[in-house]
């Protein structure tokens, strides 16, 4: 193991603190920029809202089918999935795959691009900036020892295997800040406004391209802006919902409840 390195206090004053401050400022700036760029949501398409609601209702029907009488269930099932004008029935050929639909809607592609731009550009710039000015510094030391595995996390940019792992390089400090400042942002900008970088990363990572995967990533965004995610879920989930509704077996649960109610009442009556 190498001797203890003594870090110059100038490194603290001119690398560690400026880097953190800059990261915070950039985070705040990015928040305001993305707020500016967020287009006021245009009135959503009634068809899309309706599709979303149909899916919710069909899902409810599927989940709680056994709680309504058989007759009512059959009527609803026919209403949802008959082959002429059922709500869940998507005529063949009309079903678009979600990706195509996404790109066919310019508004949506635009939104995506804005969102991605607002995070990629500043990130690339800051990374370049950090690399240019601060590369190769050992910026800090954490007060406890760590195993070798952490070397790639904490000493990015320093290729010395002899330096103790508890030293943090400036580039790693940048990454730690990038991912670790979320709590601070939620303090500064309010709970909901905190930029969730990790989540955005996930989004981006999932942006390539098999349908099942993109389905997943879009679910992640759901709370962010549900309307645009609904757009993607769209027709695809209508068909899926119809398929799963078709295979639901109705088995009325209520007769069982009579026995259960009897048991409940018997217990109630018997204990004094």
């Amino acid at each position: 193991m190498a001797e203890d390195l003594v870090l110059d206090t100038a490194i603290r004053d001119w690398v560690l603190i400026p880097l953190s401050v800059v990261m915070v400022l950039i985070g705040v700036l990015r928040y305001f920029v993305s707020k500016l760029m967020r287009s006021s949501s245009p009135s959503p398409d009634p068809k899309i809202i309706k599709e979303g609601q149909v899916v919710v209702r069909a899902r409810n029907l599927r989940a709680a089918a056994n709680f309504i009488p058989a007759k009512s269930f059959r009527a609803r099932k026919a209403y949802f999935s008959n082959e002429e004008n059922g709500l869940l029935f998507v005529p063949k050929g009309q079903a678009q795959n979600p990706q195509a639909q996404m790109f066919s809607d310019p508004n949506m592609a635009m939104d995506m691009m804005k969102k991605n731009l607002s995070m990629i550009i500043p990130q690339t710039l800051t990374f370049a900036w950090v690399n240019f000015f601060f590369s190769g510094f050992v910026a800090a030391k954490i007060p406890f020892p760590l195993t070798q595995r952490f070397r790639s996390m904490l000493q990015n940019g320093i290729d010395l295997s002899t330096v103790d792992v508890s030293y943090v390089s400036s580039r790693s400090w940048y990454f730690l800040n990038l991912f670790g400042l979320r709590g601070l942002f939620s303090l500064i900008l309010g709970e909901e406004n905190a930029m969730d970088d990790t989540q955005k990363m996930m989004q981006m990572g999932g942006f390539g391209f098999d349908p099942s995967k993109s389905q997943f990533t879009w679910r992640v965004v759901e709370d962010d802006d549900w309307v645009s995610s609904l757009k993607v879920v769209g027709d695809w989930s209508l068909g899926a919902e119809k398929d799963s509704l078709d295979i639901v077996q109705h088995d009325w649960a209520l007769p069982k409840f009579e026995q259960r109610a009897e048991a409940v009442l018997r217990k109630l009556v018997s204990d004094h």
């Binding site: 209520l254 409840f257 009579e258 109610a261 009897e262």
Partner: peptide
């Protein structure tokens, strides 16, 4: 008969 069943389920769900 259905009504009775639903009263029964309401009884069950409220614990009588």
């Amino acid at each position: 008969q259905s009504a009775k069943k639903y009263y029964a389920s309401a009884t069950d769900l409220t614990g009588g």
